[in-house]
Write a protein that binds this DNA or RNA. Sequence first.
RNA 1: GGGAGCAUAGCUCAGCUGGUUCAGAGCAUCUGCCUUACAAGCAGAGGGUCACAGGUUCGAAUCCUGUUGCUCCCACCA
Length: 886
Amino acid sequence: MEIASKYDPSIVEEKWYQYWMNQNLFHSVPDEREPYTIVIPPPNVTGVLHMGHMLNNTIQDVLVRRARMQGKNACWVPGTDHASIATEAKVVNMLKERGIEKRDLSRDEFMKYAWEWKEEHGGIILKQLRKLGASCDWERTSFTMDEPRYESVIKVFCDLYNKGLIYRGVRMVNWDPKALTALSDEEVIYKESHGKLFYLRYYVEGESIKATEENGIKQDEKGSYIVVATTRPETILGDTAVCVHPEDPRYTELNGRSVKVPGVGRSVKIIMDEYVDREFGTGALKITPAHDINDYNLGMKYHLETIDIFNDNGTLNEHGMQYAGMDRFACRKQIVKDLEELGLIEKIEDYTNKVGHSERTDAVIEPKLSAQWFMKMTDIAKKALQVVEDNEIQFHPEKFKNTYRHWMETIKDWCISRQLWWGQRIPAYYLPNHEVVVAETAEKALELANQKFPGVCSSVDDLRQDEDVLDTWFSSWLWPISLFDGIRNPGNDEIKYYYPTNDLITGPDIIFFWVARMIMAGEEYMKEVPFKNVYFTGIVRDKLGRKMSKSLGNSPDPIMLIEKYGADGVRMGMLLTAPAGNDLPFDESICEQGRNFSNKMWNALRLIKGLEVKDMEQPEVCRLGLDWMRNRMNQALEEIERDFEQYRLSEALMASYKLVWDDFCSWLLETIKPTYGEPIDRKSYDEVIDIFDQLMRMLHPFMPFVTEEIWHMLKERGENESIMVADMPKAQKADEKLLADFAAAQEVISGVRGLRNSKGLSPKEQFELYIKGSHPEQFNSIIVKLANLSKIEMVSDKVDGALSFMVGTTEYFVPMSQNIDKEAELAKLQEELKYTEGFLAGVMKKLSNEKFVNGAPEAVVAKERQKQADAEQKIAAIKAQIASLS
RNA sequence: GGGAGCAUAGCUCAGCUGGUUCAGAGCAUCUGCCUUACAAGCAGAGGGUCACAGGUUCGAAUCCUGUUGCUCCCACCA
């Protein structure tokens, strides 16, 4: 059989993915097997695959494929998220490009466009996942806004409302002036920004107060004034008080007085409250209850007037006086200019503070008073915290427990309404009498309205449904349940079988948004955790350590990478540098290692398939080598199984990699490889194929394509066979003694090769080897072959005129035909002697310490004594050699 | 401002309950090799005061304290 000399993933990957699809191997239905379930963290429906997805989904696929091969009924449910803000923004932009403004459309018209857009551009990301090899059950593909999920959300909203956990209220919320919607606290990102601190003059009303050294009052020809510092001078338009600390001696005289808001002229009261930090600024704080959460709280406390100066889009409204209609930032500039001209600014300082930005639109958040829907979180959070504390759900790495705990303990109510159209519309209906009813449909709402308020409504037309939609996370928090229709049909066969799911793979950035809330939903609706393990991936960064982002343009296109290195190569590259929870500095070149590995295995296949097989007796070298390899494989399997238990996937992959490359290719294949032109015996051939087969199965979860290809080329397979559903090899007991002996033999081989190398001799040069000391003789045939020896012999005395090396305390001699460089050899020996003597001195120091000998455990002391004996023996040997050389 | 975490070879990281798996792996580097499976390769080699300073201990990369430097999360100081 002619096999191409280089492995070409492009054809192979396409072929096998199609094959798996045709065989329907990804699909799962409940049966008597143990289930293994993963639900995908649904990517944004209009998103495209980025490196974070690659990492995340590779890990999921590894776990799912492994579970499947372990005989579990593996089900990986894919789907997408409607991402209300992001998607709606995209649709709005798309419409704008076509000359259509959202405000000119009715809700229904807009939704029609939005759905069209979703159908057209949505789900690209799921297609891309196939290129990666993702073994998702595509028949189960879901969308957070498809009918079952939509209905589930509505049902849950009604239920929580009826339980009294959802309420509507006027609160200070985070307002996104670009998306024109409220946001939850979690959707606000605080960024450091360089701004200014403006010191404004507020003149005291009525009788002026004399400025003194002690008080904070200043004076000029216009009267006495106090100075108030602010970062947002435009908000003075909404000022309704100035606050100072009651115990601040500078301002005691202000008690009961009023000041004039600069430029505005409004007279506002001085209030006294301990909230004020006397150290900051001038110790006087202007109060704008409509535009700052703290001011709002103080406003409530002192019954201050609330003047909202902004429109929803961040421009000034009619309270903005001459600035009405201006954008808030333009207004800030203008107002500063105007106040400066009026001499109302004392000074301006540079100032750095944190400013909230919208997670989705990056607009600067405006605290805004508005009517929103909230969910009470305190009680539900307690239960959700408990299951993590009790390790019913395990976090990997565990440190995220701390983060989780902290958030859960300080949790606040969740603002769940969004002023958008793309999403689940809140099923609250307002009656003409301003009462509200909550029901799953308008018809049910009418029924309810008639029950509660007889005679108010005559038809559904009298009901006005709330205009808002729900936060996207209010649908994704149900994902592990709603995917199996567990909300609408509790106790159905699917939810009973697949829930709770096993592993959740996600980024730590959505631990609050999503992970925590899913746990809450699980407790509330299933009385059971939604998953048993959460594996937090790291963040993919570029090699400079920056987060990969579209705006920086530092993110490689995953599809291009796959084309260049093969999906297997990219998968391996990602996994190798990504221990759980660690950020991974991604460099394209790590994919090379994966590609090279595919090629390595490919060439191993070429070697084996190129051999001529003959029915003949199995040579000893082959028998020994194969026997060793089986033990070595079991040893590695045990290690890999342990790694998987601890979710140490990179370690598991590295162990597999070394097993294949080093043990299988470099040692076993070199051992059993017949000399050129010679055949191999059938037994060895069959066995090496069997081992190769097992190796491919071990590796398949990591590198699904190349392993399937090789697996099929190894031997004839049935028409419908696939490695995907072959058995995962299981660790058997390994013979430790045999492995240790072989390791010693390997050292001998390396020793001989090293000598040859250091003398600049060709590998073809044959040597004789003489051994003084204990030596694993059973492997001599392998040593002879791999070290290219003409003779191997045990001796009781050292051999003169030979180069030597030691393995443990055993001396190995290689006679050299050519002259030995005595000087160099002596120098080397001297150095080794020095080192060993130093080593012995250290050991002796310990052993001569009574406290050590008495205090340390018996075994430790025994080990030290053994070290001493070995070192002494070694020193003697080195000295003897030095003597014979000089 | 509060909390969490990290610091081990040039890079990315292992190193469990202190003691031969204690200084390791992969990549990178260096030196030889086109040795008919593989130069996307083979053989060999070099490379670390385990951030710093103390302490506990017979013994510390490992435990404790402090210092420095990073990272992340949370928080309404204008």
